[in-house]
Write a protein that binds this DNA or RNA. Structure first.
Length: 611
RNA sequence: GCGCUCGUAGCUCAGCUGGAUAGAGCAACGGAUUUCUAAUCCGUUGGUCGUGGGUUCGAAUCCCGCCGGGCGCACCA
């Protein structure tokens, strides 16, 4: 069982096969192999073919730039001396053009230190590469990314932020690597809550309030009726009747329902507009209603689902050991069934059925190779069952299904993030506050900025801070939400990264020139060399993001890059230097700015020209 | 009870599917500014990786037991 809940064999990591054989022509000319991949190929050529060589960035600077432990792995199997195996690889390896003569170190590591001339040549290539050294994948996939998924008639809140931001970042990276991505917003526009909403709409609607703030009014109605239902069976019954009428196609209820969707979509559009998130399709649960009966019927016909206590359920087929079976659960007595319901005893389908119908629709409509679901970790069991039912339902399908789950955003008290009064925090208000806070810091640090520009920069910084804080931790961790931390200009934050970009732009403004056409580059100092190496590693890191859907790898890389740039900036004057040195440093600066902009852009974060 | 997940520096977190002396940010302390934005940089202090076993040349990482937290366990999604 893989950690991400991936169903079916994962594809080979794209970057391992990404040598641009089928790249679109426009990219081909500029696509750069990474140093890592070059070294890997060279070591591979020096060892027997049944070994798969991994070359990795060195754990410690003293060991050089890259290292491989292949000799130790080989020695273990051959019961040989690891250092001797390493030595024999060394004798066959040809890397003089890339590195200084490699060394055997420690228990049998091979360490590589890249020649500055090689890095310099690569810097010149990078400066001409509009894709910042990122090749398109050899075999583009069609993939659906299912993310955000807010509910109609409810304000979007912090609970939606991780799915939205993670999903958007994953989609952006996949698109940039050349995959064909369908961004699908599977909104919650159907279900029992509409019975209560309709009842409230008919009995308690305040038209003025609805016009002023439709989401708040709908939320008020829902809470009102929901509370009444708990104490008053008659209200509950009335709500149920409204739901039955809606499901039966009653024109009045359908009209109100559509109006609620329309009003909600306005809110979604506003929030997504601010966040810079876009969708290719927004198909709510209701879209799949017509298919539900057929899905249940088909599952029954095939013997996958059967009746139990009036409901229709999928039970274990005992094809896997009980410990791995999502349809079994153990108690004191032993293993007992833990079925997935596909139809409730009242005849209504539930979300497993909707998800199956959605899967079928996506196969028909797009025939994707992969579908990625970005939801919180509490739905793990649901997706394990969903994927397992799907395998039994469509046994011939090679579709890869991945549940990319994430943890909870916590408040300072370590409990799920809420307002002081215990309410959920609205996303729109959260974004307002982010911009306001960024604006205040900006006014203090840089009072000379004109108002309009300050607001625009505050928007970029505020939104960037929120997004970056969400993307930096491992997605499976819960993390503590802290305004002070995310908006700090020190440490691993979006403003720190944006500041690195701003400093470079400032240099070019002062220089009054564009990027120089260098014929050669001399990386004479450590900070220059380090920066160059780090810049080239963009192409190594980015494809890894998709291996396990972890944008935090990119966030971490960008922080290290910004750090390397700041170190360079302190140690290596650009404008005060002259001639070739100055031009070379300007070129380094430009490369750094472009990689920062590109990388942050892939996280959905924009960069200001000044701040 | 069962399952999933987490437990790493005072705090917040990384740790790339077994590699070298476990890293970063914040906080604390000490330095650097007639400057290309100090919104920065450099340095110091700080960890029995919850705990006990196991696997092996080698474990924060894999396996088993225990302790503690979060979440989930058929008609909500």
């Amino acid at each position: 069982m893989l950690q991400t809940g991936i169903c079916a064999r994962p594809a080979i990591a794209p970057w391992r096969t990404a040598f641009c054989k089928i790249c679109p022509r426009a990219f081909y000319r500029f696509t750069m192999e990474t140093i890592q991949s070059l070294l890997q190929a060279r070591v591979q050529a020096a060892v027997p073919g049944d070994w798969v060589v991994q070359v990795q960035p060195a754990a410690d600077r003293r060991f050089g730039d890259y290292q491989t432990n292949i000799a130790m792995l080989m020695a273990r199997q051959q019961k040989a001396n690891p250092r001797q195996v390493a030595q024999s690889i060394l004798e066959r390896i040809a890397v003089e053009d890339l590195c200084f003569p490699p060394e055997v170190a420690g228990a049998g590591f091979l360490n590589f230190k890249v020649r500055p001339e090689f890095l310099a040549a690569r810097m010149l290539d990078l400066s001409k590469d509009p894709r910042c050294g990122i090749g398109a994948v050899a075999r583009p996939k069609k993939m659906v990314v299912d993310f955000s998924s807010p509910n109609v008639a409810k304000p979007m809140h912090v609970g939606h932020i991780r799915s939205t931001i993670l999903g958007d970042a994953i989609a952006r990276v996949a698109e940039f690597l050349g995959h064909a991505v369908v961004r699908d917003n599977h909104i919650g526009d159907w279900g029992t809550q509409f019975g209560m909403l309709l009842l409230g709409w008919k009995r308690e609607l305040d038209p003025e309030a609805l016009q002023r703030d439709p989401l708040s009014e709908m939320e008020r109605l829902y809470k009102l009726v929901s509370a009444r239902c708990k104490e008053d069976p008659a209200t509950l019954e009335a709500a149920r009747e409204e739901l039955v009428r809606l499901q039966g196609g009653d024109p009045e209820n359908l009209g109100f329902w559509k109006e609620m969707i329309r009003l909600s979509q306005g809110q979604f559009d506003a929030v997504y507009g601010r966040l810079g998130v876009r969708f290719d399709v927004t198909l709510g649960e209701s879209f799949y209603n017509a298919r539900l009966k057929g899905v249940v019927q088909d599952l029954c016909d095939r013997g996958i689902a059967r009746e139990s206590e009036g409901a229709f359920c999928v039970f274990s087929d005992e094809s896997v050991p009980p410990e791995e079976d999502p349809f079994l659960i153990r108690d004191r007595e032993g293993w007992r069934p833990n079925p997935a319901l596909v139809q409730k005893s009242d005849g209504a389908a539930n979300y497993t059925t909707t998800d199956l119908a959605t899967l079928e629709y996506r196969m028909e409509e797009w025939n994707p190779e992969e579908i990625v679901y970005v939801t919180d970790g509490r739905q793990q069991l649901h997706f394990r069952q969903l994927f397992a039912v799907f395998r039994r339902w469509k046994p011939g399908s090679t579709l890869r299904l991945a549940h990319v789950w994430f943890g909870t955003i916590l408040g300072p008290d370590g409990k799920p993030f809420k307002t002081r009064s215990g309410e959920t925090v609205r996303l729109s208000e959260l974004l307002d506050e982010a911009e306001e806070r960024a604006g205040r810091v900006l006014a203090e640090k840089n009072p000379d900025l004109p108002e309009a520009e300050r607001l625009e920069i505050a928007r970029l910084i505020g939104l960037g801070a929120v997004k970056y804080a969400d993307l930096l931790p491992n997605r499976q961790s819960d993390y503590v939400f802290s305004w002070d931390k995310m908006l700090s200009f020190q440490g691993n934050t979006a403003p720190y990264l944006q500041n690195a970009y701003v400093r470079i732009r400032s240099i070019f403004r002062k220089a009054g020139c564009g990027v120089p056409q260098c014929a050669a580059l001399d990386l004479g100092t450590e900070p220059e060399r380090d920066l160059a190496l780090k810049l080239l590693q963009f192409g190594e890191v980015l494809p890894q993001v998709l291996d396990d859907y972890r944008p935090n790898l990119l966030a971490n890389y960008l922080f290290e890059l910004a750090n390397a740039f700041h170190t360079f900036y302190e140690a290596c004057p650009v404008l005060k230097s002259e001639g070739a040195l100055r031009e070379g440093r300007l070129l380094l600066c430009d490369n750094a700015a472009r990689v920062l902009q590109c990388g942050l852009g892939l996280l959905g974060i924009g960069v200001p020209e000044r701040m």
